[in-house]
């Protein structure tokens, strides 16, 4: 997980590949990020770097953040994130990371916060089927149905099982999209063009990192 950047979702469009196929793409601004802290085996027990992204007005930032980022010699940043590294010997505090670190990378994982949907019923939230439209069903067409019996012999007792899927708050949750293909890189403006959709609204903060695992087809494509 050595290659990671913070970024921002810009928007979606389409892209024509060289063979003429037409793919939906998302444009992501990736970096530039500053290394704001280096954690090492001796001091923290593990190796990691903390990166910061997007300047924030000092009047809007808190004093601890201003002080923390000043140690790296930069203006206060809006977002910080830590990524574990195998070794931290060749990085230094205040070093700038930009999108060029993804130049030889084919697939990335993108982590974002999904759009909030508010309080939703079981049909939208968990794809429940609902009840029937007729045959005596009254005012219960979208209800989840029974959630348990009052005495089950499954060892759960007279209470719904823990984690029972029910209506509730949907979205606004951290979502990871794995092994998304990189279509194009614009190093001048730190833009990444990736295939398909990524979580969250436009302007939302995302974490972009080298894909952790690939399926067989994608592994073959990389090698």
């Amino acid at each position: 997980m050595s290659k990671a950047l913070l970024g921002k979702k810009i928007g979606m469009s389409r892209y024509f590949l060289e063979d003429g196929t037409n793919v939906p793409v998302t444009i992501v601004e990736a970096g530039p990020c500053v290394i704001t802290q280096i954690k090492s085996e001796e001091t923290d027990g593990y190796n990691a770097i903390q990166i910061g992204y997007e300047d924030v007005k000092p009047s809007r930032a808190t004093m601890p953040i201003i002080g923390h980022d000043a140690k790296a010699g930069t203006a206060p940043k809006r977002f910080h994130n830590e990524c574990t590294m195998e070794n931290v010997d060749d990085v230094e505090l205040g070093q700038l990371l930009d999108v060029s670190i993804f130049e030889d990378v084919k697939y990335v994982d993108i982590i974002g916060t999904s759009k909030g949907k508010g309080f939703q019923g079981g049909m939208k939230r968990h794809n429940f089927k609902g009840l029937e439209a007729s045959h005596g069903v009254k005012r219960a067409h979208r209800r989840p149905g029974s959630i348990n019996g009052h005495a089950t012999n499954l060892g759960t007792g007279p209470k719904p099982k823990k984690g029972k899927r029910m209506p509730g708050h949907m979205g606004n949750k951290r979502i990871t999209c794995r092994s998304i293909e990189i279509i194009n890189i614009d190093t001048d403006r730190n833009l990444l063009v990736v295939k398909g959709a990524i979580p969250g609204a436009n302007q939302g903060m995302v974490i972009i990192q080298q894909a952790k695992r690939l399926n067989r087809k994608k592994t073959a494509a990389v090698s």
């Binding site: 810009i10 928007g11 979606m12 469009s13 444009i27």
Partner: peptide, 12 residues
Amino acid sequence: SQKLVESITENQ
């Protein structure tokens, strides 16, 4: 943002 999206797809 819209301008950025347009500029990246301009050459298409």
